[in-house]
């Protein structure tokens, strides 16, 4: 799930012209960059930041959905939700591994998430108030993430691209199970339809914000495109998402909370209303309804897992010492 348009990476770099030109030539030739290859510091830093944000988003993204596992309305829905949340954990791990190939440690990344220095997708700072929110998240949030992630399968950095291929393969089930939940609610009783509509009303705008700041306000976009970390701009991806999603919502008889949303024949896509960027920045910077709770939950998991990590290492050391003692005795 869940990458967001990159927030606040410094792409500037200090290498000499010849080095940068040689690197750009490899990128332009669609060569993949692998961990030990020479690369500009700005490229490395941008990727660490982006892959880190992406990994954190997967991990934090387990929280809003985990909230409903014990209250899923049927065994079928519960099994699917458990599998989905487990996938998100797996996606976080693929991505942390990809970031680690760039020279950052798992511990450093965890520390940056807990201290608030590293960001994660703003969408997870909204609460999951009803069961319909699980449908809306799968359909809209995973749908937006897929839109973002499919081009990342062709990212110039090999380990990130390979992780994204695995993630995208698994992601499609997430979106389909979410849409199925919405469809069942929308075709159910009046109260159920109302739940689905309410969830769509609350998740629509935050989903559009997932693509990150508008191209006109995003300073690092150009360099990321040039290095082929990104293949499409934030606004291009957002437009594709709107065009794909609106007919799906209309098909199940739901309406979108945007009076300016209408088909534009000339551009072959939908026009939509202005996004509240003040809200976006407020939520990114910690002012969303759930920011504190999300980080507190991660901090609690980290703190309460400390004895497990210590015990596992102590156990491994003990077994190793025993094996060595046995080997010495045998010699």
């Amino acid at each position: 799930m869940y990458s967001q348009g990159l927030i606040g990476a410094k792409t500037e770099t200090t290498e000499d012209e010849a080095f940068l030109a040689a690197f750009q030539a490899r990128i332009d030739a669609e060569e993949k960059i692998e961990p030990n290859d020479p690369m500009p510091e700005g490229y490395r830093r941008t990727l660490i930041r982006q892959i880190g944000q992406h990994a954190h988003s997967e991990i934090v993204g387990m929280l809003p959905e985990g909230n409903w596992i014990t209250r899923a309305p049927s065994l079928r829905r519960k099994a699917a939700l458990l599998a989905k949340v487990q996938d998100e954990g797996g996606h976080g791990l693929y991505l942390y591994s990809a970031a680690e190939t760039l020279g950052v440690s798992r511990e450093e990344m965890t520390e940056e998430l807990l201290s608030g220095k590293a960001k994660y997708s703003s969408i997870f700072n909204y609460p999951t108030l009803t069961w319909a929110d699980i449908g809306a998240i799968g359909w809209l949030v995973d749908g937006a993430a897929i839109m973002n992630q499919i081009p990342l399968c062709r990212c110039s950095y090999g380990p990130y691209a390979r992780a994204m291929i695995r993630v995208c393969k698994e992601e499609s089930f997430h979106q389909r199970q979410g849409y199925e939940i919405m469809m069942h609610l929308a075709r159910g009783t009046a109260e159920q339809k109302e739940l689905a509509q309410d969830a769509l009303n609350r998740w629509w705008w935050p989903s559009l914000m997932m693509f990150g700041p508008s191209d006109t306000d995003s300073q690092h976009g150009d360099q990321s495109m040039k290095w082929k970390i990104k293949r499409f701009t934030n606004d291009e991806l957002r437009q594709k998402f709107v065009d794909a999603t609106v007919p799906q919502g209309e098909f199940i008889g739901l309406s979108f909370p945007d009076p300016d949303l209408k088909w534009n024949e000339d551009k072959g896509g939908y026009d939509f209303g202005a996004i509240d960027w003040d809200e976006f920045w407020r939520v990114v910077k910690g002012g969303g309804p759930m920011n504190r709770e999300r980080i507190a939950a991660r901090q609690k998991a980290w703190d309460e897992g400390a004895w497990v990590r210590e015990a596992a290492l102590a156990h491994a050391r003990k077994r190793k010492a025993r094996r060595e003692a046995a080997r010495m005795a045998a010699e």
Binding site: A83, Q86, D87, G90, L93, Y94, S97, E100, R106, A163, R166, E170, R309, A312, L313, H315, A316, R319, K320
Partner: peptide, 22 residues
């Protein structure tokens, strides 16, 4: 891919969970 684990037993378990769910 890769996993973090304290020893080879836990590494195998983590690898199974992370890389062979399907």
């Amino acid at each position: 891919g890769s996993v973090h684990a304290a020893d080879e037993v836990m590494a195998l378990q983590a690898a199974r969970d992370v890389y062979t769910r399907r």
